Simulated assay, not measured.
Amino acid sequence: MIKKLLIIGFGSTMIGIGINGFILPLNIINGGFLGISLLLKYIFGFKTGITFIFLNIPVYMFAFKSDPGYFFNGVIGAICTGLMIELLVPLNGMFHLPIISSVIIGAMIIGSGVGVMLRHHISPGGMDLLALIIAKWSKVNVGVIMFAMDAVIIITGLFLLQDVKLFYSLIIVAIVGLLASLITSFRKEQIYID
């Protein structure tokens, strides 16, 4: 249990740093419910972390019926992630980098946090939790499933906000998905070796 809490703490902190330090200042989005939360912040001014927690409720209900283990991990992961996003808001505007550098660094930090949590079957919540459940049923890599869902959200964001900067969001999604795939795949290889 202590190990699980440490992993959740590390993962949610990394996501909070990546979102607030590198993504939010550029007014671009991530994928999943984080991406939807960021869109709602840009359009209506909603708080990103709190919106993220509330968006997870339907997925929690679905996960509880299909796999209670994922449900409890998802609840803890999503609440901690939402809270860390809110706690780390002071990082917004702290780093002044070229947009491409900020996108790459932010995506790598977020991807590391998401990947480490998914590697231990702990979801940061939202669509990551849904992706874990779909991956379990379909045997498709969780990172591939996440990328497909995230691409749909970003395309929707492009239509709603009509800001060409959102094309950078595709880079974020690609890097986060790639890191999640690598980290979760590495875990499986380790199991086979042992």
Rank of each mutant, 00 (worst) to 15 (best):
M1K: 09
M1I: 13
M1Y: 14
L6N: 01
F10K: 10
G11E: 00
I15D: 08
G16S: 09
I17E: 00
G18D: 02
I19G: 01
N20T: 11
F22I: 07
F22H: 05
P25W: 07
I29V: 14
I29Q: 04
G32L: 01
F33I: 14
F33P: 01
I36K: 00
S37F: 02
I43Y: 11
F44S: 15
F44Q: 11
K47A: 04
K47N: 13
T48E: 12
G49Q: 02
F54E: 01
F54H: 00
Y60T: 03
Y60S: 09
F62K: 00
D67H: 14
F71P: 00
F72W: 13
N73L: 07
G74K: 00
L88S: 00
N92V: 08
V103A: 08
V103L: 07
V103D: 00
G113F: 00
G113Q: 09
M117S: 04
L118D: 05
H120T: 05
H121M: 09
I122K: 06
S123D: 12
M127T: 15
L132R: 05
I133W: 11
I133C: 04
S138W: 15
N141W: 06
V144K: 13
I145G: 03
I145Y: 04
F147M: 12
F147G: 04
M149K: 03
D150I: 12
I155T: 11
Q162W: 13
Q162V: 08
V164P: 08
L166I: 15
L170F: 14
L170T: 09
L170G: 10
I172M: 03
I175D: 04
L178F: 11
L179G: 06
S181G: 08
S185T: 14
F186V: 07
R187S: 10
E189G: 06
E189M: 07
Y192T: 12
I193M: 07
D194S: 13
